[in-house]
């Protein structure tokens, strides 16, 4: 039964995949190779000399308990950002999908935050929660809660998670809404005729049909929380207080571009490369099995 269409000869297929391969080589394999190569050296910042240290940079990293702790911080941060950006997005999408009047305006408003750059989002949230002049921290103070993310690690984490997830909700909302609208009405109607109420229909019919989208968003959001939340953390906490919001990517930046320690920074990039590679493999191998296309 398995009908396969094959090309005759090699030239056409090679030509067709060449652009993608070329882009991957130039923008991925070459820099990744460079990072791996550089991770074996301790160079001086000006590139005047470079000492080969083998795996010395990795040894240095993993003997640092703060670096190891940064893995936990990153995991907590990524899980929180992913959850906080996907669950509200799904809820909003379900609500927007039911709207009959004014849905266009409603959707546009929900998509807006996505247009705000992460660094700007960081500044906005920082202002609202500023311990001195922030609106939110003032209200919290009225309620008797002393907000101080400058010294309280948990609050700092909460703040960067909210600031990172906020803009992302829009992005997830878009995808969920599109997926919801692709759910065949007939299936839902059939369930309704069988007597299933809205939430019952949602859990048993709609959600499974959304799973490919949810899976896609899960992968994309985890990658986002790993790499693109840098701007938010840089503007709000700079990794502090203590190291409570220093995620792996932030440390790559801080060591490489503030500390001028390019060897360690390269080694950290390599570690990150493996972590994200591993996560993606796990996701596709185990979670994807539960996804119905």
């Amino acid at each position: 039964m398995n009908q396969r269409v094959t090309f005759r000869g090699w030239w056409l297929p090679i030509l067709l995949i060449a652009p993608q391969v070329l882009i991957s080589v130039i923008f991925f394999f070459y820099p990744a190779g460079q990072a791996i190569w550089q991770s074996l050296f301790i160079p001086d910042p000006f590139g005047l000399s470079s000492v080969f240290v083998g795996l010395g940079n990795f040894e240095f990293l993993f003997s640092d308990k703060f670096y190891r702790a940064s893995f936990v911080t990153t995991a907590v941060f990524s899980i929180l950002v992913t959850l906080c950006s996907m669950i509200p997005a799904l809820f909003l999408a379900v609500m927007a999908d039911r709207l009959i009047k004014g849905s266009g305006t409603y959707r546009t408003m929900l998509i807006w935050p996505y247009a705000v750059a992460p660094a700007i989002a960081g500044v906005l949230w920082l202002f609202m929660f500023n311990t001195r002049v922030g609106v939110v921290s003032w209200y919290l103070g009225q309620l008797g809660y002393d907000w101080n993310h400058v010294l309280n690690g948990g609050e700092a984490m909460g703040l960067v998670v909210i600031a990172s997830a906020w803009g992302r909700i829009s992005y997830n909302f878009l995808f969920f809404l599109a997926a919801l609208q692709a759910v065949p009405r007939s299936v839902i109607e059939a369930a309704a005729i069988d007597g299933a109420r809205f939430w019952k229909r949602f859990w048993t019919v709609v959600l499974p049909l959304l799973s490919p989208t949810a899976f896609f968003l899960l992968v994309v959001n985890i990658v986002y929380s790993f790499f693109e939340t840098f701007g938010v953390i840089h503007t709000i906490t700079s990794g502090g207080p203590q190291q409570s919001t220093t995620i792996l990517v932030y440390k790559v930046f801080a060591d490489g571009f503030v500390g001028q320690d390019l060897g360690s920074s390269a080694a950290q990039s390599v570690v990150l490369l493996f972590v994200v590679g591993l996560l993606t493999v796990i996701q596709f191998k185990y979670i994807e099995k539960k996804v119905h296309y």
Binding site: L151, G240, Q242, V258, G259
Partner: peptide
């Protein structure tokens, strides 16, 4: 050397004192 980084880690440790950790 690397003093920008060292100052950063001193900041972290000082925060641990101020918070009483």
């Amino acid at each position: 050397g690397s003093y920008d980084q060292i100052r950063g880690l001193i900041d972290e440790e000082l925060e641990a004192i101020w918070s009483g950790d």
